[in-house]
C-alpha cells in the first residue's frame, strides 16, 4: 500500500515537473503530457482511496495521512474539473506543486490505521470530512489563482512585461476563476460545517461546543462570507479578492493543521 502511495506521489511529481517545464518552454506537447500524467495520477489516487477503504474497514478519512491525501485528491479533481468549463492558461504549473506538497505531507505522516472510538463511528464521518476537505480543494484553487493574479497585476502595474507577463492569463480570467472557485468552495465549506455539527450532536450531544477547530472553521467561514458579500454588493474584485482568497486559505489551513498542533481540542487528529 505504501509503495502504491509512493508511486502516486511520483506521478504527481512528474506532472509537476512537466507543468513547470511547459510554463518555462511553452511547448504544447509538454502540456498534453503533463495533463495526461495528472489525470493518470488522479485515477490511481482514487483507486488508492478505495483500496484503503477495504483495508481500513471504514471510510479512510480519520488519520492525518488519510485526510491530507484526500485533500490532495480533491484538489486534483477540482483542478481537472475546471477544464470542462474553461481553460485557465498555465494554471497547472501552480496547482500541481500544491498537490505534490500535500502528498509529501501525507507521505511523511503515519500510515497506520487508526481505530475509531465507537462514539465517532457514524455515517456523518465520511459525509462531513469529505465535504470539508473538498471545500478546501476549491479554496486552494482560489488561493493559486490569487497568487497568479497578484503576479500578473504586478507586471502590469510596474510595466515590467517580464517572465510572468507572457505566461500568465489575463486578469479577467483569473478573477473569474476566483469567482468560480468561491462559488463552489464556499457552499461546500458551509455544508461541511453544518454536517459537522450534526455529527457532533450525534456523538457528543450538542451541535456546537466552541472547540478550537469549530471556532476556527467559523472564523474561516465568516472571512469567506465577507469576501463573497463584498464581491456581490460593492464589486470587490481583482487584487482585493485575490488577497482575501490567499488570507482565507491560510485560515483554512490553520483550521486544518494549526488548530490540531497548536491548540488541541477534541477534533485533534482524528481530523
Amino acid at each position: 500500500m505504501s509503495l502504491f502511495f509512493t508511486l502516486i506521489l511520483a506521478a504527481y511529481i512528474c506532472a509537476t515537473i512537466a507543468y513547470i517545464v511547459h510554463f518555462i518552454k511553452r511547448d504544447k506537447k509538454i502540456r498534453t503530457i503533463a495533463r495526461g500524467i495528472m489525470v493518470a495520477a488522479g485515477i490511481l489516487h482514487t483507486l488508492y482511496l478505495f483500496a484503503r477503504y477495504f483495508e481500513v474497514g471504514h471510510t479512510p478519512l480519520t488519520s492525518h495521512h488519510e485526510a491530507v491525501s484526500f485533500f490532495a485528491l480533491s484538489l486534483t479533481w477540482a483542478f481537472l474539473s475546471f477544464r470542462w468549463r474553461y481553460q485557465v492558461k498555465n494554471f497547472g504549473a501552480f496547482v500541481s506543486p500544491m498537490v505534490t506538497a500535500l502528498m509529501f505531507i501525507a507521505l511523511f505522516s503515519s500510515h497506520e490505521i487508526s481505530e475509531l472510538p465507537p462514539a465517532l463511528q457514524s455515517l456523518w464521518l465520511p459525509v462531513h470530512a469529505s465535504i470539508a476537505l473538498a471545500a478546501n480543494g476549491f479554496l486552494a484553487l482560489a488561493f493559486g489563482g490569487g497568487i497568479m493574479y497578484l503576479l500578473q497585476e504586478r507586471e502590469l502595474k510596474k510595466k515590467r512585461f517580464g517572465f510572468f507577463y507572457t505566461r500568465l492569463p489575463s486578469l479577467e480570467a483569473l478573477d473569474t476563476l476566483n469567482h468560480h472557485c468561491l462559488a463552489i468552495g464556499f457552499p461546500l465549506l458551509t455544508l461541511g460545517i453544518i454536517t459537522g455539527s450534526f455529527w457532533a450532536k450525534q456523538a457528543w450531544g450538542t451541535y456546537w461546543h466552541w472547540d478550537p477547530k469549530e471556532t476556527w472553521s467559523l472564523i474561516t467561514w465568516l472571512f469567506y462570507a465577507a469576501l463573497i458579500h463584498q464581491r456581490f454588493t460593492v464589486g470587490w474584485r481583482g487584487r482585493r479578492a485575490a488577497i482575501m482568497s490567499i488570507v482565507g486559505f491560510s485560515a483554512a489551513l490553520f483550521t486544518l493543521w494549526g488548530v490540531t498542533y497548536l491548540l488541541g481540542g477534541i477534533h485533534s487528529y482524528v481530523g
Binding site: L156, Y165, P169, S170, L171, E172, A173, T176
Partner: peptide
C-alpha cells in the same frame, strides 16, 4: 495585447 492581458475577451 495589453487590453487582452487585462480583459481577456
Amino acid at each position: 495585447e495589453l487590453a487582452k492581458k487585462i480583459f481577456g475577451n
